[in-house]
C-alpha cells in the first residue's frame, strides 16, 4: 500500500510523456471532417491512412525527404572517414595537439551557434555554397565532428594497445596490424558513430534554415515547418503523418543503442 503514491507518480509521468505523442498519432489518422469538429476526439472515429498517402503525394515533402537522406548519408560517411584517423591519434598519442582537440570537443558543446553562424554564412556566400547541399554537408560534418571524435576515441581506447603490438611482433606491418586487428574490433563503434552522425544531420534545423533559402533545396525539417502555412486545419493531418514518418530514422537509431544509453554512452560523455 505504501507504494500507491509511487505508482501514481509514475503514472503522472507516463501521461505527461505520452499524451502529446498519442495526440500526434491521433491527428495523423483523422479525416479532415473530423479535424474540423469543435470538440476534438482522442480516438479517430474512422481511422484513415489517407493522411500518410497524402503526405507521400506532396512532392515538396518527398523531395525534401530525399534531399535530407542524401545530406545525412554524405555527412555521416564523411564525418566518420575524417574523424577515424584523428580519433586514433587522440587515443594513442599524448601530445599538445590532442589535448587541444579534446578541449575543443568540450568547448563546442557550450558555444552559442549564433556567433559562428553569421560569419559562416558570409564565408559560405563567398564560396558560393549558400543554397547548395554540399555546403550544408560541410557544415553538418564540422559540427558533428567534435562529438563523433569523442565517441570514436573512446572506442579506440577500448582496443588494447597490446593487441596491435602483438600483431606487429608477429611480423605484420603497422598498417596491416591496424587493418586486421584494430578495425574489426572498432566496427561496432564506427556503426554507432555513423548512426549518430546520420541522425544529427537528419534532425538538424538551424543551419539548414540559414543556409537553404530556396524551397527547391530545402531539407525535410524546413519543409515540414513551411508546410504549416496559414491554410488552417485542413493540412494538419498530412503534416502529423509526415512528422511521424520523419521520426522513424531516429527511433530506429535509439532502439539500436537503447541498451548502451543507460550506462555507457552518456555516462562517458558526461564524466569527460
Amino acid at each position: 500500500m505504501r507504494r500507491v503514491p509511487l505508482y501514481a507518480a509514475l503514472l503522472a509521468y507516463v501521461v505527461f510523456l505520452a499524451f502529446p505523442l498519442l495526440w500526434l498519432l491521433s491527428t495523423a489518422l483523422k479525416t479532415p471532417q473530423e479535424m474540423a469538429l469543435t470538440s476534438p476526439t482522442w480516438i479517430p472515429r474512422e481511422p484513415t491512412p489517407a493522411n500518410f498517402t497524402d503526405a507521400f503525394g506532396e512532392q515538396d515533402l518527398v523531395g525534401a525527404a530525399l534531399r535530407s537522406l542524401v545530406v545525412a548519408l554524405a555527412s555521416s560517411l564523411l564525418t566518420v572517414v575524417i574523424s577515424l584517423p584523428a580519433a586514433y591519434s587522440m587515443a594513442r598519442y599524448r601530445s599538445l595537439v590532442n589535448r587541444i582537440a579534446i578541449g575543443w570537443v568540450l568547448v563546442s558543446q557550450v558555444f552559442p551557434f549564433i556567433l559562428i553562424i553569421i560569419p559562416l554564412f558570409l564565408i559560405m556566400r563567398d564560396l558560393e555554397l549558400v543554397n547548395t547541399l554540399p555546403g550544408l554537408v560541410a557544415v553538418h560534418v564540422t559540427f558533428t565532428l567534435p562529438f563523433a571524435l569523442w565517441m570514436l576515441q573512446g572506442y579506440v581506447r577500448a582496443v588494447p594497445r597490446e593487441l596491435e603490438e602483438a600483431a606487429s611482433v608477429d611480423g605484420a606491418s603497422r598498417l596491416r596490424a591496424i587493418a586486421s586487428v584494430v578495425a574489426p574490433l572498432l566496427a561496432p563503434g564506427v556503426v554507432a558513430t555513423l548512426l549518430f552522425a546520420f541522425i544529427s544531420s537528419w534532425n538538424e534545423f538551424m543551419f539548414a534554415l540559414v543556409f537553404l533559402q530556396d524551397p527547391d533545396v530545402m531539407t525535410l525539417p524546413l519543409t515540414l515547418v513551411r508546410f504549416t502555412g496559414p491554410e488552417g486545419v485542413a493540412r494538419l493531418g498530412p503534416l502529423a503523418a509526415a512528422s511521424l514518418m520523419a521520426t522513424i530514422p531516429s527511433l530506429i537509431f535509439f532502439a539500436i543503442i537503447q541498451r548502451r544509453l543507460k550506462s555507457g554512452l552518456m555516462a562517458g560523455a558526461v564524466k569527460g
Binding site: 509521468y13 510523456l17 502529446p20 495526440w23 534545423f205 537509431f253
Partner: peptide, 30 residues
Amino acid sequence: ARVLAVVPWAMPPVVIGLMWKLVYHPDAGI
C-alpha cells in the same frame, strides 16, 4: 516509463515543435 522517457530524445526538434503546436492548437488541439 523507461522507453517513454527516451522517446522525446529520439525526436527531431522540429517534429517536437509541430507536435506541441497540434496540442496547443486553438481549434484542433486537445
